[in-house]
């Protein structure tokens, strides 16, 4: 029974991990940017929800769209005015710029938000119910549902809309996309905006389930990186599945080895994947 409970927790948390990685995988696949500031964007989204709740009294779940919209705008502008300089450039340049961005956002966060631990605590944050003898935490179930919802939305956007086709076309063949009237700068900016919006939603949920500080970004970037490689860059559902694999592995590790080893386990998974299926791992949208 304990094992079943741990697995359930791992699956529910893992879907949220997958949502965190979704934006990173999208940006990586389309723009070929490994965005080291992705975790910092998750952090920003968390604080947007936090302040919407504490200052304006907006229910945190209703504040998620606010976080997504404001993070979309942030991501769009970042891409348009900064990252378009390095898009599809040498990997080292993109890593340097996004690493610098991560440092800047983190320390601006420290100035603006202070280094205090924050938690988003709506009235239902501790609620749970019993199902088949297992305790189901309501908030984690909601996070799971939202992760599935947003990954489905992303799948539909990419595969069934003109914008999504333009995004995939740009990723697959930049020359042909330009010949067929796609403005890549616009596509890149919108794509980065969508990635940031997904990070914003993930951040809000993370702030409700865990806690926020300006420094959570780098460990969440690392986790998203592992999941993006596990799930690949092409299919949103596989990214969520990758998150669930990591979530379950971490939960099992916490149970059998000890909670301090959770990060070791996710990176061990990464090494195994890269050894077993290196080519499969990074196939773009």
């Amino acid at each position: 029974m304990l094992l079943a409970q741990v697995l359930l927790n791992g699956v529910l948390l893992g879907a949220l991990y997958g949502l965190m990685a979704l934006g990173m995988a999208l940006v990586w696949g389309v723009l070929n940017i490994v965005n080291l500031a992705h975790g910092a964007l998750i952090m920003l989204g968390g604080y947007v929800v936090y302040y919407c709740y504490t200052l304006l009294g907006i229910d945190p779940l209703l504040a998620l769209p606010v976080a997504m919209a404001s993070m979309f705008a942030t991501g769009y502008l970042l891409q348009r005015f900064l990252l378009n300089l390095i898009v599809r450039g040498a990997l080292l340049n993109t890593l340097l710029i996004t690493f610098g961005l991560d440092v800047v956002i983190t320390y601006l966060g420290q100035v603006v938000f202070t280094a205090d631990f924050r938690t988003i605590n709506p009235s239902y944050s501790g609620a749970n119910f019993m199902l088949l003898g297992l305790t189901v935490p309501v908030l984690r179930l909601i996070a799971f549902g939202i992760a599935l919802l947003l990954s489905s939305a992303l799948w539909f956007l990419l595969n069934k809309s003109g914008l999504g086709r333009a995004i995939r076309a740009t990723a697959q063949n930049l020359v042909a996309a330009r010949l067929y009237g796609v403005d890549p700068r616009q596509v890149y900016a919108v794509t980065f905006g969508i990635g940031a919006a997904l990070a914003g939603a993930a951040g809000g949920l993370y702030g409700m389930i865990s806690h926020l500080t300006p420094y959570i970004g780098s460990s969440l970037t690392a986790k998203s990186f592992v999941i993006a490689i596990l799930g690949g860059l092409a299919n949103p559902f596989k990214v969520i599945l990758g998150g669930i694999v990591v979530g379950v592995a971490e939960s099992l590790a916490a149970l059998y080895i000890g909670p301090t080893y959770t990060d070791v386990v996710s990176f061990l998974l990464l090494v195994v994947i890269l050894v077993v299926r290196p080519a499969h791992a990074l196939r773009a949208a």
């Binding site: 003109g162 086709r165 697959q172």
Partner: peptide
């Protein structure tokens, strides 16, 4: 333009390629 070497969107279906034409 029909570019040299076709330059199709290889991981899209034929229909999606055509939709890119009339986007």
């Amino acid at each position: 333009q029909v570019p040299e070497g076709r330059q199709l969107f290889g991981r899209m279906t034929v229909e999606e390629n055509l939709l890119m034409g009339c986007r």
